[in-house]
């Protein structure tokens, strides 16, 4: 085991896969000489050369579209979108096209590509360097959407994403990049896409979450120990496909579920999780499925008091837990 940051885990996963499989290559803005704006591809140009480390023009639609084309013809591209906030031009190629490759050719073609992007806020990034983008992709059958929160998960899941035969949107929370450290095995491993992970066991209240919020939820779970509330925390890790079995199992166990995400609430991941619970485990519930999510404003504002008001923290989560526990 070695202690790594999320950023290092992402870097290592790509590097190992590029060493293992010659069809894997990376493309994106500033990923060459600069090694990426976050240094996720640091040293790649030197190790793998310009043919497999492509510094692209500033044009996200073609980053996605070219990756898709290469993927349909025997390559395994990892396309990087510099910030999730700039991912919208790829919707045309990813939601419109990549997601429908397999279905629309009746299985004759498939697109083993990864579209990676740092996303999320709490970094004083304002409206255009803070957005959560998962729900837009997660709505789309034909895609897989992964949202890791720890170095261990990020590495194992990214390796699986690269080896996956379908398009995977891999969303790394940029605040976790250098902030979150954790043990990563030195030996090779992968983790299954679509499987949630129980990050904390408890018996009174379940929190279902993913991404950066996992860490705030774990903190809040500790805080409410003082109130004698025993919290279970389920990390979804993948938001499409959702791990229905894990969601229902924890619901049956505690009977009280709080869903937490940074993305805004309406029509978000929490809405789907909540619907899955009420459709399948209604009789196990001891209270309404609660959601704590980002506010209904278009994006995260810049000035510190405004950003703080937007972001969910462990205090806000602890309050929601107490409310639900009392129900």
């Amino acid at each position: 085991m070695t202690i790594k940051t999320v950023l290092e885990a992402v870097h290592d996963a790509m590097q190992e896969e590029m060493r293992r499989d010659e069809t894997v290559f990376v493309m994106g803005e500033d990923i060459g000489a600069r090694g990426g704006v976050f240094l996720a591809t640091e040293g790649f140009l030197q190790e793998f050369g310009e043919n497999r480390v492509i510094d692209t023009p500033l044009a996200e639609s073609s980053i996605a579209g070219v990756a898709l084309g290469a993927a349909m013809h025997g390559m395994r591209p990892i396309a990087e979108i510099e910030f999730g906030d700039f991912i919208w031009p790829t919707i045309n190629q990813i939601v419109g096209e990549a997601a429908k490759v397999r279905y629309g050719t009746k299985g004759k073609l498939n697109a083993p590509m990864v579209l990676r992007a740092p996303h999320g806020g709490g970094v004083r990034g304002a409206l255009y360097h803070s957005q959560s983008v998962e729900a837009f992709f997660a709505h789309t059958p034909g895609l897989k959407v992964v949202t890791p929160s720890t170095p261990y998960d990020a590495k194992g899941l990214l390796k699986s994403a690269i080896r996956d035969d379908d398009p995977v949107i891999f969303l790394e929370h940029k605040r976790t990049y250098r902030l979150v450290r954790g043990e990563v095995p030195d030996d090779e491993y992968t983790l299954p896409i679509g499987k949630a992970d129980l990050k904390r066991e408890g018996s009174d209240v379940t929190i279902i979450t993913y991404g950066l919020m996992l860490h705030h939820c774990l903190e809040a779970a500790e805080t409410v120990e003082m109130d004698d509330i025993d919290v279970e925390v389920l990390d979804l890790r993948t938001v499409r496909p959702l791990d229905t079995d894990a969601i229902l199992a924890t619901t049956r166990k505690t009977g009280k579920v709080l869903i937490v995400h940074e993305d805004n609430k309406a029509l978000g991941i929490g809405a789907e999780v909540s619907a899955i619970i009420s459709e399948n485990a209604f009789e196990y519930l001891d209270g309404p499925v609660a959601r704590l999510a980002g506010p209904e404003i278009p994006a995260m504002p810049f000035a510190p008091p405004l950003e703080d008001m937007y972001m969910i923290d462990s205090e806000k989560i602890a309050n929601s837990i107490r409310q639900l526990a009392e129900y």
Binding site: A126, L127, Y128, H129, F302, A303, L306
Partner: peptide, 17 residues
């Protein structure tokens, strides 16, 4: 410095936006 009176976005946005 994201202060009150910023005329372009009321400090909702990055500077100059």
């Amino acid at each position: 410095v994201a202060k009150e009176g910023e005329p372009l976005s009321g400090a909702r946005q990055f500077p100059t936006h």
